[in-house]
Design a protein around this nucleic acid. Structure first.
Lengths: 119, 119
DNA sequence: TGATCACTTGCAAAGGTGTTCAATTGTTGT
DNA sequence: ACAACAATTGAACACCTTTGCAAGTGATCA
């Protein structure tokens, strides 16, 4: 293998590491979308959307085709959906753990709201 | 929820987006490791390793504790393991697709080692 | 106490990423 | 052929990350 797998993985995750790209993938994992449909859902400049789409295209996570004067994008690896779900599970799990350890943080508790957090 | 979920997800994936951090998580998902054990496995300056560990700590993906004069790290969300596996599956799937679409690019292989993998 | 080991932190240089605007391509309708 | 639309590209700038070195902390042991 030319590129070590852990490096390919890192690149892959970096590709996912942008809010707009996450939203795009979430929308596409429901159904194919034309660019202007994505624009309706995501608050972003058209050119910026295009940039993000091109990042996803470069990584082969999505493909585009032209249909009736629009460009339609689809997910090329349906398993991406599972990945996003797995991420949500982990995220919610971590959040729950945090809430557990520091229940005194969230509501504006007056007395001794000192945060100790192992520096 | 204060931070939109898709933004938290992006942050989460960005945390995974570094080769050293991937390796650390892979090692930790096998078993807990002391810092110097990680150093033996990963080719990296100690201070750099420390920085990467601190990124993982900040995101609550790992926790550290001191034991017998060493600092031992462990994974705090065991599901991370599934996530790494899911990533590998997708990565290998994408690679296979690429190999399929452009068999003429890599080696000039003549006879049919074709792989088909229906989009 | 002082030396040493095991890590961590601060910081500056270098490199990389994201955002926007303007310009461009390509397609469709008149 | 031209205008209008849809999407993309290029370039400049700001911002963030990574890296390595030097310095620092904090525990353990002679």
């Amino acid at each position: 293998m030319s590129v070590p797998l852990y490096q390919a993985k890192a690149e892959f995750f970096r590709t996912l590491g942008h809010p707009a790209r996450i939203r795009i993938l979430e929308l596409l994992s429901e159904r194919d979308h034309a660019v202007h449909e994505l624009l309706d859902e995501i608050t972003i400049e058209p050119s910026n959307l295009s940039q993000q789409l091109s990042v996803l295209r470069r990584s082969s996570m999505v493909v585009s085709r032209r249909r009736d004067g629009e460009v339609v994008y689809s997910i090329s690896a349906p398993e991406v959906r599972d990945l996003l779900l797995a991420a949500r599970r982990i995220l919610l799990g971590l959040a729950a753990q945090l809430a557990d350890l520091e229940p005194e943080l969230t509501p504006p508790q007056p007395s001794g709201s000192q945060r100790r957090q192992a520096r």
